[in-house]
Design a protein around this nucleic acid. Structure first.
Lengths: 351, 351
DNA sequence: TTGAAAGCGCTAACAG
DNA sequence: CTGTTAGCGCTTTCAA
């Protein structure tokens, strides 16, 4: 890329003049060159090269109503945000897929409810073609803002609230938490375990609820309420829950933890009590968080979800819904279907 | 904010019609309302409110040549990116300050050298008013791209390469690594320690080099090369370096580690060898990374830097340089001065 | 103080 | 196939 004269970027006009064609032709070439005779294409290409021409984004957006940018909304309070490895992977997937679609990632970091006004204005200002948001709670204002602003949006994780028919009224991408949990518990059953406990995640996160449901699906009537303990997805809560379970049901022979972090906490307690894993108690986690599942002793059998893939999928869904919306008023109302991505049981030594 | 007719956003024109004034007047009101008689201002404000008018960003950018967005460039290979708590804090500061300046954060995630073309095009396309980048290496293409594209940019961390006069040719914000290191070592000296070792960070990161220099500043002639061991900022490397040092200089009575992570590794080894901290060996870290320094036993004495503040400062510097650049060609060439932010010794139990 | 009018740089009919 | 033309929505002289 040559060094253009500082301060004065060449315009379409300049390129057209240099190539001896009209602005329209240059525009066509710049946008793919369909329907332009080859020699002309060449000529224009050369002029572009020589002048170091780069299209002005604002001008293009003004007429096409597309700005090649998507907002990723991060609501700080509910999130460990960055430090969450889960989130990092998801954003990586999003970023990659966005690049493939020639779109940019605009980070909207929301520090609290007071900032929703700013977000609404931004989303409404047409700065972005769409938005990506993450698992929101029942009382979150975000969905309502998004609806009001008519911004195509895809959620990551099944939202906690639902539409008139019980299903979330917005498109989302989520892992098959329930199915994954079923597979995990079935695995324990197949191992011959009979008193299988569960350490559940926070009740207000749909992923945790779904995993608990999956656990119940398999155990059915055998599900003993005393075998379920409450955690909050942290290592410490996992340890506490394990101690509690051992107290209530010293004879348990397996544990399905709602995530790897809690599983590692549980593992610590089991070993402290002199219980062997998996001989005395088999243990299964969820997430397959590399920094945890592979590091424990023994390494965790767990349920893997394709987190980066989920990020990419969010973008694909969003792009589809953006492309549909070209069709005038009302088009935005037809929500594209949500997607549930499959999970996979990863067998290691703990069960 | 009222719900505008879906699909048809009101324009300035519409507001003007409703308020019975010209577009120019509406524009003035929307942009602060200077020089417009109060009753008119009121009238326009009401029309804006009623119509739910939000200015079209692209149109505004097209004429003002400002887009209220700043790129944050993240070069993946060199970064643990998100999961790095250091980085998270920095981005938080950046995001907050950007919001205060009514600007948005556009995340440019660079996955490899092959993507530099995309970045160049983006930066050159005038999508953003400026860019923020992080400690780049000698062979990094980024600085050259940035110069070619005439994009105002501020770096985080002193760059490894330098201009004709030995000083980096670009504005940057960095902590006073050298001064902080001096303070740490002086503290150890004041404690009566005489054989003070240093575990250095990677030689190709300026922060590590500066800390080593600070260490040498204080020890002067007393600096025994055998008392310096090489690490790479990880816990493990700290442990290895500590073992090495103990091997070479069993009589050492203090250690200044290049960061908290390495300090925690060193601490583990010291305890394994039955050495008491701080009685036998005093230990000081760097960074005051909460998840590390406060958790060790004993808690680490360390050097704190205001990371979020550094992020904010980067934005302020950038905004200043953007504002200057209004002055036509060549204005971008005058780099604003860099800033070194102070550090502070935090005394805990390890020294 | 307010309005009229000229354009920012580009795309997209519409003609030729 | 290529060129001409009419805006996209906004800011900003310049007159009134």
């Amino acid at each position: 890329m040559p060094d253009p004269t500082p301060g004065v970027r060449p315009t379409l006009e300049a390129v057209a003049a240099r190539a001896g064609v009209s602005r329209a032709t240059v525009s066509r070439v710049v946008n793919g060159g369909a329907g332009v005779r080859l020699p002309l294409v060449e000529r224009v290409r050369r002029a572009v090269e020589e002048l170091g021409y780069i299209p002005n984004h604002a001008a293009r957006t003004l007429v096409t109503r597309r700005n090649g940018a998507v907002a990723v909304i991060i609501a700080e309070p509910e999130f460990r945000v960055f430090s969450d490895p889960f989130f990092e992977q998801q954003v990586r997937g999003i970023s990659r897929e966005l690049t493939a679609h020639d779109s940019q990632l605009v980070l909207l970091w929301v520090e609290g409810p007071g900032e929703y006004d700013r977000i609404a204005r931004y989303l409404g200002g047409g700065h972005v073609d769409g938005a990506l948001a993450f698992s929101v709670h029942d009382d979150d204002e975000l969905p309502s803002i998004i609806r009001r602003m008519h911004v195509p949006t895809v959620f990551g994780g099944r939202p906690g609230w639902s539409g008139p028919h019980g299903a979330p009224a917005v498109p989302y991408v989520d892992a098959d938490n329930r199915g994954g949990a079923r597979e995990a518990v079935r695995h324990l059953v197949a191992l011959g375990r009979r008193r299988i406990a569960h350490i559940a995640g926070p009740r207000d996160q749909t992923s945790a609820v779904d995993r608990l449901d999956g656990y119940r699906d398999v155990l059915m009537l055998d599900a003993d309420p005393g075998l379920v303990a409450q955690g909050d997805f942290t290592v410490e809560s996992g340890a506490r829950a394990m101690a509690e379970l051992l107290e209530r049901r010293p004879d348990l022979d397996a544990v399905f933890a709602g995530n790897d972090l809690m599983a590692s906490g549980a593992l610590r307690v089991l070993r402290e009590r002199g219980l062997r894993v998996p001989q005395d108690v088999a243990l299964v986690g969820f997430d397959d968080m590399a920094s945890v599942a592979e590091m424990t002793d023994p390494p965790l059998t767990t349920v893997r979800q394709d987190i980066e893939g989920m990020g990419r999928l969010m973008v694909r869904l969003l792009m589809r819904s953006i492309d549909q919306d070209g069709g005038g008023p009302g088009a935005a109302e037809t929500a594209p279907g949500s997607v549930i991505t499959p999970t996979e049981l990863v067998r290691r030594a703990s069960a």
